[in-house]
Amino acid sequence: MRGDATRRRIFVFTGPDGSGRKTIADMAGSTLELKKVLSYTTRERRPAEQEGQDYYFVEKETFLAAERNGEFVESVSIDNHQYGIKQADIERLWAEHGFVYVILNPQGARLLKQRYGDAVVRVFLYTDRDNAERRQRARGDGEALIAHRMSHYDEAMSYLTECEYAFENVDIAHTVFAISNTLERYLNRQLLNLD
């Protein structure tokens, strides 16, 4: 059975802002045919983001009510915005598919690891500070926001040593290939040539 507890894994893509974690996670998830567990957030949607594909965008009152009801397996507050993953979403996708992925900052990744233990496999993505800033500018983020995020860069980087895997994202295609080969070993489907 695909949802068998011995074959359940949550692949958590994490790392500092500007590391490419969302792009890499979605490309690797698509390559490996993994289901994505979406976070709920109270922040405004960015121009390229889509409801139900990138996040579930909800009002703060809705988020806080769900939090009071104990619906989130992890929730964090970042820059006065709430983010969280619902336990019901993980359980449903696990039952249907067995293997799922999420995109979280290091704080959220740590909470998920505490909750699900060995079922969580953390993939830390990073790039140097200059590349991280350049990527945020390229997606249209303002200088004040970039400066604020980069003030957390060293703190985010310190989480690298706690993760099961770490990849420097210099070239997207190469990084996706390397991660896909690494995670395929957990799936044991022999979809990719691992040589």
Rank of each mutant, 00 (worst) to 15 (best):
D4E: 12
R9K: 15
R9A: 09
I10Q: 01
F11K: 01
T14I: 13
G15V: 05
P16C: 02
D17H: 04
G18L: 06
S19T: 07
R21Q: 12
T23K: 11
I24P: 03
A25N: 03
A28V: 15
A28Y: 12
E33A: 09
L34P: 00
V37D: 07
V37Y: 00
V37R: 00
L38R: 03
Y40S: 02
R43P: 00
R45E: 08
E49R: 05
V58S: 11
V58H: 06
E59Y: 15
E59G: 12
A65S: 15
A66Y: 10
R68F: 07
N69P: 01
E71W: 07
V73Q: 00
S75H: 09
S75K: 02
S77D: 04
N80S: 09
H81L: 03
Q82D: 06
G84W: 02
K86L: 07
Q87L: 13
D89A: 13
D89I: 04
I90A: 00
I90Q: 01
E91M: 14
E91Q: 13
E91H: 12
E91R: 14
R92M: 09
A95Y: 10
E96I: 10
Y101F: 15
I103K: 04
R110V: 06
R110L: 12
L112M: 13
Q114H: 13
R115V: 14
R115T: 06
Y116C: 01
G117Y: 07
V120I: 11
V121N: 06
V123N: 01
F124P: 05
F124R: 04
L125A: 05
T127F: 07
R129A: 11
N131Y: 15
A132D: 10
E133W: 10
R134W: 09
R134Q: 15
R134D: 11
R135T: 07
Q136K: 12
R137L: 14
R139Y: 10
G142N: 15
R149W: 11
H152F: 14
Y153S: 03
Y153R: 10
Y153V: 05
E155L: 12
M157N: 08
Y159W: 11
Y159T: 05
Y159K: 05
C163V: 07
Y165N: 04
A166G: 02
E168P: 15
E168L: 14
E168K: 12
N169I: 10
D171T: 15
H174G: 15
V176S: 01
F177P: 01
A178M: 12
E184H: 06
R185H: 14
R185K: 15
L192S: 02
L192G: 05
N193Y: 15
D195E: 04
